[in-house]
């Protein structure tokens, strides 16, 4: 078996072992009522029309927020990263602002952000922040990832600065941008769910809060699982895009 096949098999085995352990703990009641058996939780939520309709409606709302946030954040992140590339004077300031913004816990920033966009706008904003930081870092480092030999070739060929940027720096940044997208995709989903905690009208985050407060443990479990699956799906979609497009630029 190839080493890649072995890795995939090991991954599947590991995931199965975890699911089995969670199932056993739930069935035997080892962790009390707060730990339902996964199979039981999934069947009872999806079997209940009201709950499953609520789940899918919330999922839709979260996907819209995450998608919008991903788009806004990516455009902003790439634009700011490009700005720092065009004007090197700005670079240290932009780097520091971005990392400070990224390291402050969201909970601390939330009151400020809510006054800025209102509770409804929070999920899009936090999704955009999550995606934006990843894309900013990817753009800033990607545009500088030009190989010295390529740069020398452009210089001795008498290339203008604009040609240097368009024909060399931008294509050289593609692998880094694609890498950034894999982080931005799952980051946007995470950001959207978190943002919904601050008073959004609907979404997976809202459902998490309400099911937690009403002690609907099974629903809470399924919502968390859905959020994780969506985040994984976003990640692997971007990885697939990265493989498809990135091969040519690497």
């Amino acid at each position: 078996m190839s080493s890649r096949g072995k890795k995939i098999l090991l991954g599947i085995l590991g995931a199965l072992a975890l699911i089995l352990a969670a199932e056993l703990i739930g069935r035997l009641g080892l962790a009390g009522k707060a730990w339902p058996a996964p199979s039981d939780a999934i069947f009872s939520v999806l079997g209940n029309k009201l709950n499953s309709a609520l789940l899918f409606r919330s999922l839709g709302a979260t996907l819209v927020s995450a998608g919008t946030g991903l788009l806004i954040g990516s455009v902003a992140g790439v634009a700011v990263g490009f700005l720092g590339f065009l004007f090197p004077v700005l670079r240290p300031g932009l780097d520091q602002t971005a990392s400070i913004l990224n390291t402050i816990p969201l909970v601390a920033l939330a009151p400020l952000l809510i006054t800025l966009v209102g509770p409804q706008g929070m999920s899009v904003l936090t999704a955009a922040l999550g995606a934006g930081f990843a894309m900013f870092v990817a753009t800033a480092s990607g545009l500088l990832a030009v190989s010295p030999a390529h740069s020398d070739f452009f210089t001795v060929s008498g290339a203008s600065r604009l040609q240097h940027i368009i024909r060399l720096s931008l294509p050289s940044a593609v692998p880094s941008l694609l890498g950034g997208l894999t982080l931005a995709g799952s980051g946007a989903v995470l950001g959207a769910v978190l943002g919904e905690w601050f008073g959004a009208p609907s979404g997976l985050g809202v459902l998490m809060i309400s099911s937690m407060q009403n002690f609907q443990v099974k629903l809470l479990f399924v919502v968390a699982l859905t959020a994780a699956l969506v985040s994984l799906l976003a990640f692997y979609t971007m990885v697939a895009i990265q493989k498809l497009v990135g091969r040519r630029f690497a």
């Binding site: 190989s147 030999a149 390529h150 020398d152 070739f153 001795v156 060929s157 008498g158 060399l168 294509p171 593609v174 040519r248 630029f249 690497a250």
Partner: peptide, 14 residues
């Protein structure tokens, strides 16, 4: 008016 061939071929991979 200058042509250079480098030790590293420096062809653009894309």
């Amino acid at each position: 008016r200058l042509g250079v061939a480098f030790q590293d071929h420096a062809l653009l991979p894309w």
